[in-house]
């Protein structure tokens, strides 16, 4: 997939580079020589960037910002990739099969997508998290792992109709092409046609929107944290932002650091998604 980028403009290249850095941090974040992200250092509450021991400074609780941002990449990326991966696969499968088979199944799938899309996606995610992450006993908090799982599950449900609809639309454009008819007339079976002829053509469109969806999920994770139902007590970009939201007056850098990192990641995802989509248009035009 990387070879698609050899002719990209500088903005796309920088975006790709940034996403690679984020990917590196989320894989190796824990083993990098950084302070413990959940260690609250009382000697350096709210120190600014470039202080000894804290390269990007610390927030008012004494947590090292660089360590939190690097390790937080892991949670944020995990949530984003798993929910887009799972939601995208389920949505794309449903969308492609529905568009290929048409008829009642298509009507059912399309109506279901419309129903899910009729609830604004943050509202849908919020209500799913609110219901699923309710603890049976109000005095006992739900564990971070379970909360993360609930968030991933909820955001997966949010992503399914978004990517499903794109896949359905793209499939409809290919399903009546001559080569599909030819394959069918030669007696190729439906699942073979879908795998060999439809999927390779539909996939580029899904990649493009998939990157945009990663951006959507990262933003949603942040928004859920601010609403108080994110990865509470965990280390993620959203929960960092939520934690320092009220400290701007005394330690503005503790907001700038996660805000800039999160924004850059979303901008990069959007740029790469847009780039993939625009390349797709050109390819379509040549045929």
């Amino acid at each position: 997939m990387l070879k698609r980028f050899y002719a990209a403009d500088w903005f796309t290249r920088v975006s790709l580079l940034w996403l690679l850095v984020v990917a590196f941090c989320s894989i190796f974040g824990r083993v990098l020589p950084l302070p413990d992200p959940s260690f609250s250092n009382f000697d350096s509450l709210g120190v600014g960037p470039f202080s000894p021991g804290h390269v990007l400074g610390a927030d008012l609780n004494g947590y090292d910002l660089l360590a939190n941002v690097v390790v937080g990449a892991q949670t944020s990326m995990l949530i984003a990739l798993v929910s887009v991966g799972a939601g995208g696969s389920i949505g794309a499968t449903l969308g492609i099969v529905a568009a290929y088979r048409r008829g009642r199944f298509d009507y059912f799938v399309n109506t279901s997508f419309n129903i899910l899309l009729s609830i604004p996606n943050l509202v849908l995610g919020l209500s799913l998290v609110a219901v699923l992450a309710t603890s049976p006993n109000p005095d006992v908090q739900i564990s971070v792992a379970r909360r993360t799982f609930v968030i991933v599950l909820s955001l997966t449900v949010v992503i399914i109709p978004i990517l499903g609809r794109i896949a359905r639309g793209a499939t409809l454009a290919w399903v009546n092409r001559d080569f599909v008819t030819a394959a069918r007339s030669m007696g190729m079976r439906d699942n073979q046609i879908i795998l060999r002829h439809i999927v390779p053509n539909v996939l580029p469109a899904i990649y493009g929107v998939g990157f945009l969806a990663v951006g959507v999920v990262i933003v949603a994770e942040g928004a859920l944290s601010l609403l108080g139902v994110g990865v509470i007590d965990g280390i993620s970009w959203g929960s960092m932002i939520a934690r320092v939201a009220g400290d701007f007056e005394f330690a503005p850098h503790s907001l700038y650091v996660p805000a800039i990192v999160l924004s850059l990641t979303v901008i990069s995802c959007n740029q790469i998604g847009d780039y993939l989509r625009s390349r797709l248009d050109i390819r379509e035009g040549k045929i």
Partner: peptide
């Protein structure tokens, strides 16, 4: 267009509101 609105909100609240 890619900067999440809650980040803008927090920055504005801090900068125009408090500082």
């Amino acid at each position: 267009s890619a900067i999440p609105n809650f980040i803008l909100a927090l920055l504005f609240a801090g900068f125009f509101g408090v500082t």
